[in-house]
């Protein structure tokens, strides 16, 4: 069978989702943000909720997310995305409101907003990209940075006595009564991408059914900040990030029958 016979519209099994705008992203080559954007666009299309979806973009690398996915977006002040999403969700009860935040946004400056939105049980989805670094500003230490990890502001590695310990925010959110689903996923292999997609789908379904706050943490790479190639960063993430941030569901409240 020749290549021309295979490449026909009826044989297409995977392609670029229509909701993804046909533009170059500003992300570095191999950045996990691109994969997560893609699965969000695929899901909104598959679930047929693009008209109802409202995204809240953070400050950080994903600040231009509104240029890449063709839905309604709000740009929030640094860390305040869950507070903005609260308003959007309360004023538009039919909307599917989700925030898309990095670790510098969600677990540093926005810790209070995140915890209180989750504690109030707002019907929103929080998508949390944790790459253990401030990627956009040049790779400074974030609260999630691992002990011993070299960053621009901890050139000899993070020290517990000087910089404190890495903050795992998902277990904190899982301990709150307002959250219904807290999970930690990754997007480094095809299988992991499919699992992450299923997790985000479940979170979107929870928000539509008004079951409370859903949190999907994606353990991600920042190959520019980590000074590694994209493939090496995936290996580094598996070796170093997963022991501190193990994958899996931290909380999953099944709906009452």
């Amino acid at each position: 069978m020749t290549r021309e016979e295979i490449i026909r519209p009826e044989n297409k099994v995977y392609g670029r989702p229509e909701l993804l705008m046909p533009v170059h992203t500003h992300y570095c080559p191999g950045c996990s943000h691109g994969v997560v954007h893609k699965i969000i666009a695929e899901l909104l299309q598959e679930m047929n909720v693009a008209d109802k979806a409202v995204g809240v973009a953070p400050v950080g690398c994903a600040v231009f997310a509104y240029n890449y996915i063709d839905i309604d977006w709000i740009e929030a002040a640094h860390g305040r995305a869950p507070a903005v999403a609260t308003a959007a969700s309360r004023l538009n009860p039919d909307a599917l409101v989700f925030t898309y935040q990095g670790d510098g946004d969600l677990s540093a400056i926005g810790t209070a907003e995140t915890i209180h939105a989750a504690n109030r049980g707002e019907n929103i989805v929080i998508i949390f990209i944790n790459n253990a670094i401030y990627g956009m500003t040049g790779g400074q230490m974030a609260p999630t940075t691992l002990l011993g990890m070299k960053t621009a502001t901890t050139p000899y590695g993070r020290r517990a006595d000087l910089n404190g310990y890495p903050l795992a925010i998902s277990p904190i959110l899982a301990s709150l009564d307002g959250t219904c689903y807290v999970t930690r996923q990754a997007v480094h292999t095809p299988a992991a991408v499919r699992k992450a997609k299923a997790a985000i789908k479940k979170a979107f379904q929870n928000a539509m059914a008004k079951r409370g706050t859903s949190v999907v943490e994606i353990v991600a790479t920042c190959n520019s900040g980590w000074k590694l190639t994209p493939a090496q960063s995936n290996d580094w993430m598996v070796e170093n990030m997963f022991p501190k941030y193990p994958l899996g569901d931290l909380k999953n409240v099944e709906p009452q029958q």
Binding site: T25, G30, K38
Partner: peptide, 10 residues
Amino acid sequence: VCPDACIEVY
């Protein structure tokens, strides 16, 4: 796994 969604599969 493509972050830029530039691959189509048949």
